[in-house]
C-alpha cells in the first residue's frame, strides 16, 4: 500500500540512492536513513532553524521539505565542515566566543553562517544579527553568536 519513490541525493559529496516514502521529511532522511545526526530537529514546523542545511548552496529548513522534493540536489550538513581535530573557522569562532551552550541549535546556526558569509564576507554586528534571526537559541541570548559570526568572517578572510 505504501508508495515508495526512488531518490538520488548527494549529501556532503556522497551520492545516496534510496527508496523512500513520499512523506518522509528531509530531516528524518538525513538523520535516520543516512545516519547523519548532526542535523537536529527542534520544532518540525519551520520556525526554530535547528534542522537548517544547505540545498544547492542555499540554507533551508529540512523539516519542512519532503526528501522526494530534493531528488537530484546537492546537500551540505554540519558534517561537511571541520572535524574535532581540525575545525572549520566558523566552528573555531563559535568555540572562542562561547557561542554555544547545549549545542543543540548550533549546527543550524553554522549552516546559516556558511551561506551568509559567502554573500557578506565582512558583516557588521547588525547584519550578522539579522542573518541569524531565523535560528532559535535558548541558551546564549545570541550576543556571542553575533560576535562569533563576525570573528569567523575575520578568520576566513585571513585564511
Amino acid at each position: 500500500m505504501t508508495q515508495k519513490v526512488k531518490v538520488a541525493i548527494t549529501v556532503n559529496g556522497t551520492l545516496y540512492e534510496r527508496e523512500v516514502e513520499p512523506r518522509l521529511l528531509l530531516s528524518d532522511f538525513i538523520r535516520h536513513d543516512l545516519g547523519l545526526k548532526g542535523t537536529h530537529v527542534g520544532c518540525e514546523h519551520g520556525l526554530c532553524g535547528s534542522c537548517t542545511v544547505l540545498i544547492d548552496g542555499l540554507s533551508s529548513r529540512s523539516c519542512t521539505l519532503f526528501a522526494v522534493m530534493v531528488d537530484g540536489s546537492d546537500i551540505k550538513t554540519v558534517e561537511s565542515l571541520g572535524t574535532m581535530e581540525k575545525m572549520h573557522p566558523i566552528q573555531e569562532a563559535f568555540q572562542e566566543k562561547h557561542a554555544l551552550q547545549c549545542g543543540f541549535c548550533t549546527p543550524g546556526f553554522l549552516m546559516t553562517t556558511v551561506e551568509f558569509l559567502e554573500g557578506n564576507p565582512n558583516p557588521t554586528a547588525e547584519e550578522a544579527r539579522e542573518a541569524i534571526d531565523g535560528n532559535f537559541c535558548r541558551c546564549t541570548g545570541y550576543e556571542n553568536i553575533v560576535e562569533a559570526v563576525q570573528l569567523a568572517a575575520k578568520k576566513m578572510a585571513a585564511d
Binding site: R31, H32, G35, L36, K37, G38, T39, H40, V41, T77, V78, E79, L81, G82, T83, M84, E85, M87, Q91, F94, Q95, E96, H98, L100, G103, F104, T106, P107, L110
Partner: peptide, 21 residues
C-alpha cells in the same frame, strides 16, 4: 578556558537522545 565539550558539539558529534539508535 575554552570549553572541552565544544569541538564535539560543533562538528555534529554530539549524541542527543534522538541520535540513539
Amino acid at each position: 578556558y575554552k570549553r572541552n565539550e565544544d569541538p564535539r558539539l560543533l562538528t555534529g558529534n554530539g549524541n542527543y537522545i534522538d541520535d540513539i539508535e
